[in-house]
Amino acid sequence: MRYQVGAALALAVVAVAVCVHLGMVFLHVAPSNTVTKAHGKAIDDWVYPEFEQNWKLFAPNPLQQNIAVQARAEVQAKSGEIRTTGWYDLSAEDGRAIDGNLLPSHTQQNELRRALDFFLATHDSDNRPSGLRGSLSENYLRRIVVLRLDREDAAGKGGVVEQVQVRTRTTNVPPPKWSTEKISDKPIYRVLPWWSVATDDTDTDTDGGAE
C-alpha cells in the first residue's frame, strides 16, 4: 500500500511537471496574447535560458535579400605611412566556401551572418548601440572582421591594422523568371563608423579556422 501511494505521488508530480512545462513552452512560442501579456514574466522565468526556442523558420516570410558584410582597414605600414585598404567582401568569401560544400561549417554559414543580425537587432538606424547587448555585438562583429582581415593579410608585411570599418550591402533577390514582379536590383549600402582595433582583438587564434 505504501508503495502504491509512492507510485501515485510520482505519477501526479510528473503529470503536473509535463503539463506546466508544455504549457509554458506553448505560450513561449505562441504569438503575444492575453495570457502572455498577463504572465510574461513567469513564462520567461520558466523558459529562459535553457528552453528558449524559435521555430519561425523562413516565416512569416523567407528573407528576400542578400545582405553582405564588407570591411576595410586603416593600416599603418612599417614605414609609418597610413593607408586605407579597399573593401573586402567577407560574405562573398563565405559564399565561395559554401559553394559545392556538402558540410558547410558554422564559421562559414552562421558566424558573420548571425553576428550582423545581432548587431542590427541591438542598434538603431544611426548605429547607436542599445544597452549591454549593443556593445557586446559591436565588439563581436569587430573581432570577426579583424580576424578575417588578418587572414586576408590586409595589413601587408609589417603593417598594423589600426581601425576597421564595416558596411552592409543589401541586394534584393531577383524575382523568379516566371514572375511579373519588378523590384530594384540596385544595392543599398549602410556604412558603420570606423572602429579602433583593441589590443586583444588581434590575440584571436588565427590558425583556428584557416582552411
Binding site: 516565416a59 528573407l63 533577390v173
Partner: peptide
C-alpha cells in the same frame, strides 16, 4: 510569400543557403 506560392524560391537564392 507562402500565400502567393513563391516562398521556396527565395532561400534557394540566398548566398548563405545555396551551395
Amino acid at each position: 510569400r507562402w500565400q502567393d506560392g513563391t516562398a521556396v524560391y527565395y532561400p534557394l537564392h540566398l548566398d548563405y543557403f545555396s551551395p
